[in-house]
Write a protein that binds this DNA or RNA. Structure first.
Lengths: 212, 212
DNA sequence: TGTACATCAGTGAACGCGCGTTCACTGATGTAC
DNA sequence: TGTACATCAGTGAACGCGCGTTCACTGATGTAC
């Protein structure tokens, strides 16, 4: 069987693009059965190759998982940046949009989210993963940097602290209520409404105007 | 080998108290190797019994994990209640103390915390687990009920919403930074300081006085 | 109090299974000349 | 352009291992009389 290179991703030798195919297989299996519920052999089977083939691309299961997480952070960064949209239409609205993007990502990509935050893969053990994680956070950090300029110089909170606060709110809500794979708890309101009201009250506490 | 019933927990037939011993073994294994890193056979080995013995007490591995989570919620509830201390010395201070208790639990008992929130065991599938989880949340909810009475009647936020906000902040910080088993990210401040400042700003946003 | 019996927690051997990992190999693609 | 060789992604068979699960059993404890 030989494939023409019609698809942009289709290239290479025997399989075509086994590395990416294995990452996709891992994502599907994580979504189906949780981060613990997939094996190296499973991923090979899903990708339609022999159980020995993955060893050409990943040292072991953890290396594969780390690559899923790294790819996840890349997409996450892109979604957060799209939410922020360079601070348009106004800084406060754009800031709320980052939170929405955060929840949208957790909902749309529960497999990536799990690999990134709950798979036990430590970013500190993998420089590339760490860098991808840091770049995601930098979107939030940079938004906070710009947001504090709305306040008079003497009343500005530390932007780092502020971005950590927003991150923890978003992550808390996403973890508890906003997962696409059957969230663990039900709510009398949507996760988005809960986060939006939380951020609103928080910004009021810092003295931000209702809109800008 | 026969044991006198010196220890309060020591009773029963052959092993003494295998059920509790298995739960403790599961906790130790989760703490060591993560929620995915223990098996039914592992737990039996740690408890010093044959691999068939656990079947007398738990249907399968998930049932054991659910019981770890249930026991975790019981201790969690107790810690939160101790933090609140009936609203002493004053409601605002006691409210902050619940947050501290939340983080202290995640730090001191990472194995329970993992089983409760990240093991994939759904509270909805187990009535007892669900009830234990609800009782934990009820501590926070009841504290919020009392706290809102500090505000004039027309300016009181819904206590349910408020308790969900506080829960998500605490859970977000505990998950991201405040784990006893080698948290995944380092911080320029303690998790406790981060949560305390976050809650403080949030309460200011709702119009609460600095102390009461 | 003593005896006979019922109960049931835990045993240990056995099984089938799928995983992780290795190995010499095959065969398509890339490259030197 | 063609030929010979090097490279390397993927094969498939094999292995040891530990897991989950079952089974008839054993033996300590509880209970009826």
């Amino acid at each position: 069987m030989s494939w023409k290179k019609g698809d942009r991703e289709e290239r290479g030798y025997h399989h075509g693009n086994l590395r990416e195919a294995l990452i996709k297989a891992a994502r599907d299996l994580i979504k189906e059965k949780g981060p613990a519920g997939f094996t190296f052999a499973d991923a090979a089977r899903s990708a339609g190759v022999s159980p020995a083939a993955p060893y050409r691309h990943f040292r072991d299961r953890d290396a594969l998982l780390a690559d899923v997480a790294r790819e996840g952070f890349q997409r996450f960064e892109a979604m957060l940046a799209t939410g922020w949209a360079g601070g348009k239409p106004d800084l406060i609205t754009a800031f709320h949009n980052i939170g929405r993007a955060y929840l949208a990502f957790a909902r749309a990509e529960p497999a990536y989210y799990t690999a990134m935050f709950e798979s036990g893969v430590s970013p500190d053990l993998n420089a590339e993963l760490r860098a991808a994680s840091d770049r995601s956070f930098a979107v939030l950090r940079s938004a906070a940097d710009q947001l504090v300029t709305l306040l008079p110089a003497g009343k500005r909170p530390p932007a780092l602290m502020m971005s950590l606060h927003i991150w923890s709110m978003s992550h808390g809500i996403a973890s508890l209520f906003g997962r696409g794979d059957g969230g663990r708890r039900s709510l009398p309101m949507t996760a988005e409404e809960l986060l939006e009201s939380e951020v609103l009250i928080y910004l009021q506490g810092l003295g931000f105007p209702q809109s800008a």
